[in-house]
Amino acid sequence: MGPMPDRREKILAVSAELFATKGVASTTVRDIGEAADVFSGSLYHHFKSKNAIVAELLTRYMNDIQRRFAEVVERSQSPQEVLRGLILETLVIIEQHPHPTAIYQNDRRYLRDNGLLEPVDHASRSVREYWMTAIRAGVADGSLRDDIPAEVFYRSVRDSLWASMHWPIRGGYSTGEFADLLTRLFFGGFATER
C-alpha cells in the first residue's frame, strides 16, 4: 500500500472542510484540488465527481452513526439506558464529525437537487428506528410516560441535540456532562417535584 489511500483520505478531509465552510454548491473541484495539493485530473482518478465525494462523506457518516447506535442497543439493559446512550453518541458524532454534520444540516437543498439526499434519508430513517424502538419499549414497560406521543419526544430530543452544536454555552460542558444534563432534562423535566 503506497500513498494512494492517504491521498484519497486527504481529498475527503479537505473536501469535507470546504463543503462545511463554503457550502457544497460554492466549492469547485479546483478548490478541492488546490486545498488537497492534487491536480484536478488526478482528483478524478479517485472520485468521478464532486458529488461522489459528498456521497462518500455522507455514507461514512451515516454508517458511523448506525454502528454507534447498534453498539448502544447491544450493551444497554433498559429502554432508558438505550436513550441515554443515543443522546451521548449523538453528541459524540456531532463533535467527531463536525463537517459532515454541517453538510447534512446546511446543504439539504443541494443534496436533494443532486440526488444525494435519498440514500442519507434512508439511513436516517433506520437511525430514527433506534430511538422509536427504545421510546416505545419504555412506554410499554412503564418507565416512560404514555401521555406524550413517542414522535413528539423523539423529535424534541433529536432537534435539541442537533441544534445544540450552535448554542454559545455548549463549549462550557464536556460531552459527557452535556449529555447528562440533557438526559436529566428530558427524563425529569424542569419542574421540581411538589
Rank of each mutant, 00 (worst) to 15 (best):
I87Y: 02
R109Y: 10
A102P: 06
V72F: 09
W167H: 12
R108K: 15
S174E: 02
E177S: 08
T133Q: 05
I135H: 00
V127I: 13
H97R: 14
E81T: 13
D146Q: 15
E118H: 14
Y110R: 09
R136L: 14
T133N: 05
G115L: 04
R108D: 07
Y130H: 14
V82K: 07
D113E: 14
P79Y: 03
Q96S: 14
D147A: 04
G142I: 10
H166K: 13
D141T: 06
G176H: 12
A150T: 00
Y130C: 01
I65D: 00
S76W: 10
V72I: 15
A140P: 02
R155P: 01
L181G: 00
E74Q: 11
R112S: 15
A140G: 06
Y104K: 09
D146G: 15
D180K: 13
S76Q: 06
V72A: 09
G115F: 05
Y173C: 06
E74C: 05
I103D: 01
T90E: 05
R109P: 04
A70F: 13
D113G: 04
I94S: 11
E81P: 10
S164T: 10
V157F: 02
L83H: 08
A163K: 14
L117N: 00
S143G: 03
Y154A: 01
Q80P: 04
A134R: 00
V73W: 14
Y61M: 04
E74D: 12
D107W: 00
D113F: 02
I94V: 15
V73G: 06
R67M: 13
S76Y: 10
R125P: 02
G176I: 08
P149K: 03
S156I: 00
L86W: 07
W131R: 00
D147E: 10
S156L: 06
R170N: 14
P119C: 10
S156M: 06
R170L: 13
G171L: 10
H99S: 09
P79F: 03
M62N: 03
Q66H: 15
V72H: 06
R108W: 11
L91I: 15
E74H: 12
V139W: 07
Y173W: 11
H99W: 08
S78A: 11
A140D: 12
T101R: 14
V139E: 15
S78D: 01
R128C: 01
L117K: 00
E177M: 05
S143C: 07
Q105F: 09
R155G: 07
G176L: 12
S126G: 07
R67P: 05
Y154T: 00
P168H: 07
I148W: 04
